[in-house]
Amino acid sequence: MDRSDFGAAVRHLRESTDPAAVGLPVVSRRVSGLRREELGELAGMSADYVRRLEQGRSHPSAGVVKAIARALGAGRADYERLSALAGYAAADGQVPTDLGPGATRLLERFADTPMIVTDAAMNLVAVNSAFLALEHWDRTGERWEWNVAWRAFCHPFAAFQQSATDARSHEAVLVAQLRAARLRYPADASLAALVDEMRSRSRRFDTLWRAPRPVAAYESSATFTQSDGDSLTLVGNLIALPGDDLAAVMLTAAPGSRDAARLVEVVGAADGRAVVKVGQTGPG
């Protein structure tokens, strides 16, 4: 464990916390966030101890990590991250899979934009009907058929094609997401089994897992082929939803392009459902 990383994370959360959100009076402040004295009082520890934690001069117990997270009103993702940086598994150590209100609103407000929501392990949690209209997510009957990373490395989609450059970018992001999830959720047996199977089944994934590439950008383009033989090229952008430790991928076409016009046609033929929950048994 690098104590300085934990300390930097605590300081960032402290300085980013709205005092009113944790029950403190709204007064004129020279700096944003909470003072060390305020965090110490809320968490049941001295301001000097908070200072030593932030400076990397003290190692917190699991109870201290939990107290700090509670005092700051930290969401699950931030608590999981603090725990991992301190060298502990969080309370249950399981990847959360609930579709939170933020992700639901995102799907509802961009109903005409193909979009998916995944958990930290890259399992699909929900999609919208615009995404289903792309017709590329075929079924395999295998355990991980709804996992984005597993499909990319172990059972690629026939109707989904990328250039070599975009494929490298896409793979780098998927490996980075899974590695981060393993750090945050070391006790999640299902996630561990997924990584083990991918490493044994895909030599390319195993190589990247052992020596990951740096992530240059959280976007890449791909061509989707429709059942009528036509195709369209879309750019996927990964958007973090940290409160629930979920991520969304939005697929868009270049404005004014032939692909944009084709996307309007494809989405217009969808049934219009804004939120389609996904699981091992498929959309429903």
Rank of each mutant, 00 (worst) to 15 (best):
A90M: 00
T281I: 03
R35K: 05
F157V: 01
S58G: 07
R143V: 07
I116K: 02
A176M: 09
F6Y: 01
A158W: 10
A9Q: 12
A164I: 04
G284S: 13
R36D: 03
T113F: 10
H170F: 12
A261N: 13
V117M: 12
T233E: 13
P255H: 05
D166M: 08
D188H: 08
E37Y: 08
A9R: 14
T17H: 09
A240G: 05
T104D: 15
D230P: 02
A181I: 04
E142M: 04
S257H: 08
G33R: 02
T118M: 14
L208V: 14
G272A: 14
L194T: 13
P25C: 09
H136I: 07
R70S: 09
D259A: 10
L232K: 03
A254L: 10
W150F: 12
Q226Y: 02
R81Q: 13
D112M: 15
D230W: 02
G7I: 01
D5Q: 12
H136E: 10
D245L: 11
H170R: 15
A62E: 01
R258F: 12
P60W: 00
G243I: 00
G40Q: 11
G40W: 02
S221H: 07
P25K: 00
D245A: 09
A172I: 13
N147I: 09
T233K: 03
S190K: 15
T223L: 13
F160E: 14
C154N: 13
R201K: 12
G229M: 10
L85R: 01
G102N: 06
T281G: 11
S163E: 15
A158S: 14
L24M: 06
S190D: 14
A8N: 04
V275L: 15
T118G: 06
V31N: 02
K277T: 08
L106R: 02
G243T: 00
V195A: 10
D138M: 03
L183T: 09
A216H: 13
V95D: 03
A176Y: 05
A189C: 10
V267T: 06
A77T: 04
V175M: 13
A120S: 08
G141C: 05
E197L: 14
L13F: 15
L13G: 06
P212S: 09
V264C: 15
